[in-house]
Amino acid sequence: MTTEHSGDGDISRSLELLWGLGERPSRGPKPALSLDRIVDAAVAVADAEGLGALSMRRVAAELGVGTMSLYRYVPGKAELLDLMLDKIVEFDPDAHPDPSDGWRTVLESVARGGRRLHQLHPWLLQVDQARPLLGPNTLTGLEFALTGLAGTGLTDREKFQVLVAVDAFVTGHARTRLNSAQAEKRTGISDEDFWKAQEPVMIKAMETGRYPHLAALAEDTFAFGDKEDDEIFELGLKGLLDGLSAFIERRGPGRPKSP
């Protein structure tokens, strides 16, 4: 699987493009392309064909222009990826609750929004963001989350640790789902056929009496589809937030303390 890394290009140039800090010509004909069109096309290519298919040449073909024309707008693929990562997290206020609705409602929105993001852009899991470049959309999302956590009694450091924990849960869930889908595509064997092939051996193993708890499981325990995927996600999210709620209650609102 292709792995890319955020911030691997010219960091200064990526930040200029993210924040619109570069000089823009005030005269002359209107350019045929725009940075937004290029980024949108790059996201479309990655969504449809995977991150391995992404290249300046492929994006140019998507736009129906020559490859060299893209370099007037973005230095290369690494910087383009930085722009793509910020583009896909564009914040829509109408899709999120008011932060005054409480920290739990905000974090539920953050988690479910993150899950949708991975469903829409599976290639996101192929990007190592250990060193993320902070663009305007990324900061807007962080500001929303931190506004929701205001008044919880958590220290600033703990607030970010909470966001990291929620992100890790969402990413882990998305990776499990994606790995399953890719296994079926890679091997040509469906999940149903994969597990069915193991059934004769498993039956004999259960008959030995060595695994009484496994043998007693209901037949639908391992049912796995979209409905079950939703249930797994919501159960995990509830457990995570219930634990955080207990931690916050011990602190008392507005009174950060040492752990």
Rank of each mutant, 00 (worst) to 15 (best):
Thr3Cys: 13
Glu79Met: 00
Arg131Asp: 14
Asp86Thr: 05
Phe222Arg: 15
Phe247Met: 14
Arg175Lys: 14
Leu241Thr: 04
Asp220Phe: 01
Ile248Thr: 07
Ala111Phe: 08
Pro253Ala: 11
His5Val: 11
Leu240Gly: 05
Phe144Gly: 04
Leu54Glu: 05
Leu15Cys: 11
Thr221His: 11
Lys227Tyr: 03
Gly20Ala: 02
Ile189Ala: 05
Ile11Tyr: 10
Val162Leu: 05
Thr176Cys: 14
Val164Pro: 01
Pro122Glu: 04
Phe160Pro: 00
Ala168Asp: 15
Thr140Met: 10
Ile232Asn: 13
Arg24Asn: 03
Phe160Leu: 13
Pro97Met: 07
Lys238Tyr: 12
Ile88Asp: 03
Gly172Pro: 03
Arg72Cys: 00
Glu62Met: 09
Leu80His: 07
Asp167Trp: 11
Lys227Glu: 07
Lys185Ala: 15
Thr155Met: 06
Ala223Met: 00
Thr152Phe: 11
Asp82Glu: 08
Trp103Asn: 02
Arg250Ser: 10
His5Arg: 15
Arg37Ser: 08
Arg157Ala: 15
Met206Arg: 15
Pro29His: 06
Arg175Thr: 05
Phe224Ile: 10
Gly9His: 02
Lys87Pro: 01
Leu81Ser: 02
Trp103Gly: 00
Arg57Thr: 15
Ala41Gly: 01
Ala145Trp: 08
Asp8Arg: 10
Asp229Val: 05
Ala130Pro: 00
Phe194Ile: 09
Leu149His: 00
Pro93Cys: 06
Ala183Arg: 15
Ala53Val: 07
Lys196Thr: 09
Asn179Pro: 01
Ala46Pro: 02
Glu143Pro: 00
Thr138Asp: 01
Glu23Arg: 11
Asp86Ile: 07
Phe247Asp: 09
Ala46Phe: 12
Ala197Pro: 09
Lys196Asp: 06
Asp128Ser: 06
Pro136Lys: 02
Gly148Ser: 08
Trp19Gly: 05
Ser245Asn: 11
Leu80Asp: 06
Gly52Trp: 00
Leu125Val: 05
Pro259Tyr: 03
Thr138Ser: 09
Asn137Ala: 09
Thr171His: 09
Tyr211Gln: 14
Val164Ala: 10
Phe160Gln: 03
Phe169Trp: 15
Lys77Trp: 06
Pro75Ile: 06
Glu79Leu: 02
Gln119Thr: 06
Trp19Thr: 01
Gly113Val: 06
Ser245Asp: 15
Gly239Gln: 05
Val127Trp: 05
Glu249Gly: 08
Gly172Ile: 08
Arg157Gln: 06
Glu199Asp: 12
Phe222Gly: 10
Met68Asn: 09
Leu21His: 01
Asp10Val: 07
Ala42His: 02
Gly254Cys: 05
Tyr73Lys: 09
Leu51Lys: 10
Tyr73Glu: 03
Lys196Ser: 09
Gly236Pro: 09
Glu158Thr: 08
Ser190Gly: 14
Met68Val: 11
Arg13Met: 10
Arg24Trp: 01
Leu241Glu: 03
Ala181Glu: 15
Glu143Arg: 04
Ala246Asn: 04
Ala168Val: 14
Tyr71Trp: 00
His121Asp: 05
Leu107Lys: 04
Asp156Tyr: 00
Lys238Asp: 12
Leu124Phe: 13
Glu23Leu: 15
Ala246Val: 02
Trp123Cys: 01
Ile38Lys: 13
Ala246Leu: 13
Ser245Glu: 15
Ile189Asp: 08
Ala218Tyr: 07
